[in-house]
Design a protein around this nucleic acid. Structure first.
Lengths: 114, 114
DNA sequence: TGCTTATATAAGCAAATCATTATATGTTAA
DNA sequence: TTAACATATAATGATTTGCTTATATAAGCA
């Protein structure tokens, strides 16, 4: 793992972003699978604007990026971010959250966005 | 480095704690040197209660511990914490903040607490 | 074109956060 | 035992956060 150094103030702002259970889980999921907003809405049982606002913060910080695919906007982890290696280090300590996507699949809700 | 897994909710709460510049710098300093409250007051140019409150949060989370030495209370990193390895991973991405202690030493303020 | 779906933005609000000042506690030393 | 020093706790207030509802924007499709 490449351990690049990050200014302490910027690091704090990234850690603050990751210091929210919803956002941390989002990033954890995005580390393995691209996802669209509607999937997160299902997973977190949260309003669509709430999800959009979390994603916007992550995007503003450069942690994730978005790509439009038809009417969907697909979010993915930004591997070019200055903070990518910091984020990876953190994620390495967390248990996989992929069961959340499995549950979606069982409900037939995962496919809708792919 | 031992990469132990941490429940995602607890991880988020630790990251939130580290997501504050003052606390992150404190932890960074404590990683190499034990410090007392009065030193942090000097370093951060912040009121003593503000420093105490930051340290209390870190202590409540088990990240740091305190030892009384005479009238001083010395804070140190809790190496037995469940989150120690997560914290270490994060700190590994930050530049040393030891210059802050060097400055204290030059002012003759570091010695007072040792 | 107009309806539906997916997402973003705006406005508002309750709760949490981070500082402050004032005060209490505990240790040392005269 | 009283004064000084180091630290903690309490009360308070401004700011930030994370949600909500309402509305705007944009793409797909009948």
């Amino acid at each position: 793992m490449n351990v690049s150094t990050v200014e302490i103030e910027k690091a704090a702002s990234i850690l603050k972003l990751l210091g929210d259970k919803t956002r941390l889980t989002m990033v954890m999921l995005l580390n393995n699978h691209d996802c669209c907003v509607c999937e997160f809405v299902e997973i977190f049982k949260m309003s669509q604007p709430a999800i959009s606002q979390h994603l916007r913060k992550l995007k503003d910080a450069g942690v994730v990026r978005e790509t439009r695919r038809g009417q969907w906007i697909i979010y993915s982890l930004n591997q070019d971010s200055d903070f990518y290696s910091l984020v990876q280090s953190v994620l390495g300590h967390l248990p996989s959250q992929d069961y959340l996507l499995e549950e979606l699949k069982e409900q037939g809700l995962r496919i809708s966005c792919e």
